[in-house]
C-alpha cells in the first residue's frame, strides 16, 4: 500500500514542488555542492594527505586523496539527504505550514512523506553529481586516477539507497518539539554515524565493537562499494551482504518514517 503511493501522481506533485523551489534558487543551490568537495579535497586530500602519505588498501597502497574521494561522494549523499529532511522538512512542516496547506488539497499525508523522502534522496543525488564533476576535473588535471565510469551506475543506485538517510532524518523531524532540538540528532547520531563509516578514514583497526556497529551502518557499506569500484575493483561476493544491509536500511527507515511522520502531520494540521 505504502509502496504503491511512491509512484502516485500526488507524490510526484509534492516532489515537483520541492524541485521547483530548489531551481528557483539555482545559483545558491549549486555553488555549495561544487565548492564543498573542492575545499575538502584541498584540505584533506592534498593538505592532510601530504602528511598521511599512503594507506594500505587491499593488497596494495593508495594515496589518501584516492582514499577519501569516494568517501566525500558518499558522505555528500548522506549529509545532504539527512540535513534536508531534518531541517528543510521541519521548516516546511512547522514554520511554513506548507504541509498543512497541501493537506487541504487532493494530496494525502503518505504522499507528503514519500515526497520528502524522495526529495531528500534526489537532492543528495544532484549534489553527488556535482562532486563527481569535481572529481572528473581532478582526473583530467592528473591529480587523481579514479575509475569514474562506474559512477554512472553508482550514483543513481546510491541515490535510491539514500532514501534510508532521508527517512532516518524524518524520524527526528517527526519527534523533536522545536528546531533547536535538531542539534541532538546531528551531533549525537549523524556525526558519530559518519565517523564509523569508512568515509574519511579506515576503521579496520578500531575496537571490535566499533567495527561491528559499522556493519549495521548503511553509509559504511555504501562507501565501501563506492571505493571498491572507483579504485578499479570488480564485483565481489561480499557486496551481496552490503547490498542486503542497504536494502534492509531502506525498508526499515522508510517504514518507520511513514509511521512517525503520519502521526506528526496529523498533529500539526
Amino acid at each position: 500500500m505504502i509502496l504503491r503511493e511512491l509512484l502516485d501522481w500526488r507524490t510526484r506533485a509534492v516532489l515537483r514542488r520541492n524541485i521547483r523551489v530548489y531551481f528557483l534558487n539555482w545559483k545558491s543551490a549549486f555553488v555549495p555542492p561544487l565548492l564543498e568537495p573542492v575545499v575538502m579535497f584541498l584540505a584533506f586530500g592534498l593538505g592532510l594527505g601530504a602528511y598521511v602519505g599512503g594507506l594500505r588498501y587491499g593488497d596494495g597502497q593508495i594515496s589518501y586523496l584516492h582514499y577519501i574521494a569516494p568517501g566525500v561522494l558518499t558522505y555528500t549523499l548522506f549529509t545532504t539527504a539527512f540535513m534536508e529532511c531534518l531541517y528543510g522538512s521541519f521548516v516546511r512542516m512547522f514554520y511554513q505550514k506548507t504541509f498543512e496547506g497541501i493537506l487541504g488539497t487532493g494530496v494525502e499525508r503518505v504522499n507528503i512523506i514519500w515526497g520528502e523522502i524522495v526529495w531528500g534522496a534526489f537532492r543528495a543525488t544532484l549534489y553527488a553529481l556535482c562532486v563527481a564533476l569535481v572529481l572528473l576535473v581532478f582526473n583530467l588535471l592528473g591529480v587523481t586516477n579514479l575509475k569514474l565510469a562506474s559512477l554512472w551506475v553508482l550514483i543513481p543506485a546510491g541515490g535510491i539507497f539514500t532514501m534510508a538517510f532521508s527517512s532516518f532524518a524524518l524520524l527526528f523531524t517527526a519527534t523533536v518539539p522545536t528546531i533547536d532540538h535538531m542539534n541532538y540528532p546531528v551531533f549525537l547520531i549523524g556525526i558519530p554515524l559518519s565517523l564509523i563509516s569508512n568515509t574519511y578514514f579506515p576503521i579496520d583497526g578500531f575496537h571490535p565493537f566499533i567495527t561491528l556497529a559499522a556493519q549495521a551502518n548503511p553509509l559504511y557499506h555504501m562507501s565501501r562499494i563506492f571505493r571498491h569500484f572507483m579504485l578499479g575493483g570488480r564485483p565481489e561476493s561480499w557486496m551481496l551482504g552490503s547490498l542486503l544491509v542497504l536494502i534492509a536500511g531502506n525498508v526499515l527507515m522508510i517504514g518507520l518514517a511513514h509511521r512517525l511522520m503520519d502521526a506528526r502531520l496529523e498533529k500539526e494540521s
Binding site: 501522481w9 506533485a13 515537483r16 514542488r17 521547483r20 511554513q96 506548507t98 498543512e100 487532493g106 494530496v107
Partner: peptide, 20 residues
C-alpha cells in the same frame, strides 16, 4: 498556509498540480 517559497502565481499553479 501560503507557500512563501513560491510567487503569487506559483502558489496557484503549483496547487493546481495537487489536484492533478
Amino acid at each position: 498556509t501560503l507557500d512563501y517559497d513560491l510567487t503569487v502565481r506559483g502558489n496557484l499553479t503549483v496547487y493546481g498540480s495537487y489536484y492533478h
